[in-house]
């Protein structure tokens, strides 16, 4: 993957897959040949056919359609949680990094304590209160996810606040909120975006894991994780029930990770040149 051409090709493939997936998720109700819960009693555990492209599951539901609706869950959780994370990180991270003082100490101590608490435990604890389901997973993963990004933004802000252009702005008496808007955010946004792409991959995996163990998105709504979990009972007759959602999941996670890391590489180069 070192050669430039093949790397570009690979990243292009990954990026196209992600765009395709987003399209599939958004337009799932129009693309999917069936609804995610339509049961075809005539075709239970059917093999792939023109009627059911990827076959059907134990209740005669179309696997291809369920995969498309599952993409909605994965991307919905990924993007939803990451948006909350970015909002909190930009707010708290810049506040703490720019003004230092008590907010900073408080943020650092609090996030330290959060890091000492294993993520999955906290997520399970929160799901215990909220109950399983899309909303519960969204809240649980958002609570677990915000500290690391906030620490990153804080660290970057600490460096930025010493830069000449920030000092110059300060000396002209510009208010903090203006400096944040005009000088801090534009510098932070690329790093945040690139890191987010990689984080979304992790979030999609986490959602699938929670749905796999049964405390994520609840049936009949499909999630790739719960599809894998259900398919395990039919391993002997229909291993593809596990295979397709696992493939969709792996491709998504790998694509997001590669694109995110590529963005990080690329933008760091530009940053180094321009500074």
């Amino acid at each position: 993957m070192k050669s430039g051409f093949f790397r570009s090709l690979w990243i292009g493939l990954c990026a196209s897959y992600i765009l395709l997936l987003i399209g599939a998720a958004v337009f799932a109700p129009w693309i999917a040949p069936y609804s995610y819960e339509t049961q075809n009693r005539e075709a239970i555990l059917a093999a792939p056919s023109p009627k059911h492209w990827l076959g059907t599951d134990e209740l005669g539901r179309d696997v291809f359609s369920r995969l498309l609706y599952g993409a909605r869950v994965s991307l919905g959780i990924g993007l939803g949680v990451e948006s909350i994370t970015i909002f909190v990180a930009l707010l708290l991270g810049t506040l703490a990094g720019y003004f230092r003082g008590k907010i900073d100490t408080l943020l650092m101590r609090f996030t330290d304590a959060m890091f000492a608490f294993p993520d999955i435990l906290l997520a399970i604890l929160i799901l215990g209160i909220s109950g399983p389901g899309f909303q519960g997973v969204l809240i649980a993963l958002a609570v677990v996810n915000w500290p690391s990004m906030t620490r990153l933004v804080r660290g970057l802000t600490l460096v930025l606040r010493e830069k000449d252009f920030v000092l110059a702005a300060q000396s002209t008496g510009a208010p903090g909120s203006w400096i944040a808007r005009k000088h801090l955010f534009p510098h932070l946004i690329r790093t945040v975006f690139a890191v987010s792409t990689v984080e979304i991959a992790g979030l999609i995996l986490a959602e699938s894991a929670l749905s796999f163990i049964g405390i994520g998105v609840q049936p009949p709504y499909p999630s790739w994780g719960s599809m894998i979990s259900n398919g395990r009972d039919f391993m002997r007759s229909q291993p593809s029930l596990v295979f397709y959602p696992a493939l969709a999941l792996s491709m998504t996670v790998i694509s997001l990770t590669f694109v995110g890391e590529w963005l990080q590489d690329r933008w760091q180069l530009i940053d180094r040149k321009s500074s």
Binding site: S208, S229, G231, R232, M235, V242, S250
Partner: peptide
Amino acid sequence: TVPNFVLAPLLVY
């Protein structure tokens, strides 16, 4: 890269 909830059914199979 392979999550354990994918690896588990694979190995079981």
